[in-house]
Amino acid sequence: MSWLSENGLALYGSVTGTAALLITFFSHRHNVKKDQIKLSVSYAGHQNKSKNIELLNTDNSENTWDKPNLVEVYTVTVRNLGSISAPLHDVGVMDKDGKKHQALVNHQMSHFLQSLSESHSETLEPRAAKTFSVYLRRGESVFLPVLAYAIDQTGKEWKCRA
């Protein structure tokens, strides 16, 4: 008992210092983790997928301007689960052959559709979600995606498998 009474102050100081170090470490780790981009990606067939493909393949119109050249077939939903804004660079689906089919968005200055990588980047606010459309072009065969992807401005790729 004499050791405890002689070194009690030193023991108290070491326990208190260790507790302070642990609190500081976990606080720092929490602050670093909360400032990261975290995305969730999901995809589904467009609600009018079969009608759109049928419309694309019909050839009953005499005028070429009456025929659609693009139809929506899949939608990709990207959710920002992080606490900071996430600038997106590319969104789309990949088929079994490894070919990427990029989602198309309206260009801000015109009404033309283009991929995110060709146009301005979309910024997804924290706790927000945005749905992008993947189109099928006239002359392309119908594809079945095996995964959806989203790439942020840092180059990190977020995927969702079927």
Rank of each mutant, 00 (worst) to 15 (best):
N57M: 14
H111R: 15
T16D: 08
R137C: 06
A20W: 09
N60Q: 11
A86W: 10
V91N: 03
N52I: 05
A44W: 06
L55F: 03
Q108N: 11
L11R: 06
R161V: 15
K156G: 04
N63Q: 14
L21E: 04
N60K: 08
T16N: 08
V91D: 00
N80L: 04
Y149N: 00
E157R: 13
V78M: 03
N80H: 05
T77W: 01
N48F: 09
H89M: 15
I53W: 01
L9W: 09
A86L: 06
N80V: 01
T131S: 10
Q47S: 14
V15L: 14
Q47M: 12
N106Q: 11
P145L: 01
S42E: 04
I37T: 00
P87Q: 02
E157K: 15
A86N: 03
T75P: 05
D66W: 13
K130Q: 11
G13R: 12
A103C: 05
S110C: 06
Y135T: 07
D35L: 14
N60H: 13
L113A: 02
T64I: 14
E157H: 06
K38A: 11
A162Y: 03
L55W: 08
K159I: 08
K49Y: 10
K130W: 13
L113C: 00
K156P: 01
N31R: 11
K38Q: 13
L136Y: 03
D152H: 03
I53N: 01
R138F: 05
L124M: 03
W158M: 00
